[in-house]
Design a protein around this nucleic acid. Structure first.
Lengths: 155, 155
DNA sequence: TATTGTTATACTCTATAACTATA
DNA sequence: TATAGTTATAGAGTATAACAATA
């Protein structure tokens, strides 16, 4: 017997499916992020900015691969970041087709600013869930990723 | 040091954020679902059909609440299900404003049909992750839901 | 006054297919 | 031939605000 936390409705098998619970969790998480970030930046762009910060100079294709998005989707995200002057497309040494993506100073500043509030979100998860459970959860999510990643791959 | 499983890129702090990993996991999960379901039904509609199966006769508002979607979003999902003749809007006893949502026989058949393949997805998660880890993961996801649910609430 | 369902509208996220320029 | 980036296009998914009918 698994009851829905909000409504008390009996959800039966539904609530025992990883896929469905993951989906609901994601809806809630994006809503919390939107609240925290004050809509300054979308979750997708935030993710990309963070990756760039850790890995300056990556090609767009690399960024698409590690965020599991399509190359064409990445174009739009990079466009957005460039318009708001948070990142730049620079020449990529050794391949004139590619762009090396770098943060601007404004982009660095944004991340510093946001990392306070976003870190607070993560901190609150630690506080309310407990460090141990939080780490367990993160580990299990990554394991699940590794398991299901090949299932959706095109041939 | 946490490396991206696919690209081997160093993702630093990014890969240690529950929010980001959850997001990537969700992208992968929806892709796997799309592959399995052959695009016969969207994840959102599938979720709703499953809830209806377990709870025949709910109002649209109830469905919206337990899936954490807006009432107006639910209208579109129910419309889709009705068009494909998988569910029906019937009179709701005691409140002439509301509709009682029920599966049609065609809808029952679809779910029976899909539950084979969707259950296989879940089964594969059990197989590859192990029953114990799978149950742990499910429990932790639900705990996380309970923790973050209030954060995105308006007011 | 409050709730149920609805519409109109808009924005975000994502992908496919076809193109160009390079490799 | 293959890859990097781009464009055009399309389809999900979601929400807000305003409305009519009913409570």
């Amino acid at each position: 017997m698994s009851q829905d936390t909000l409504t008390g409705l009996e959800l039966g098998e539904l609530a025992n499916m990883v896929g469905v619970e993951l989906r609901i969790c994601q809806i809630l998480a994006e809503r919390a992020f939107a609240e925290t970030s004050q809509l300054k930046v979308s979750p997708g762009l935030y993710m990309v900015l963070s990756v760039i910060q850790q890995n300056p100079g990556l090609k767009q294709t690399d960024l698409a691969r590690c965020t599991r998005l399509d190359r064409s989707t990445m174009v739009g995200i990079i466009d957005q970041g460039e318009q708001r002057q948070w990142l730049q497309r620079l020449p990529y040494a050794g391949d004139r087709r590619a762009h090396a993506i770098h943060l601007t100073k404004k982009g660095e500043a944004l991340l510093d600013d946001m990392q306070q509030s976003v870190s607070q979100l993560e901190q609150r998860i630690c506080d309310e869930l407990g460090q141990k459970k939080r780490d367990q959860l993160l580990g299990l999510i990554k394991e699940l990723q590794a398991v299901i990643a090949p299932w959706g791959d095109k041939v």
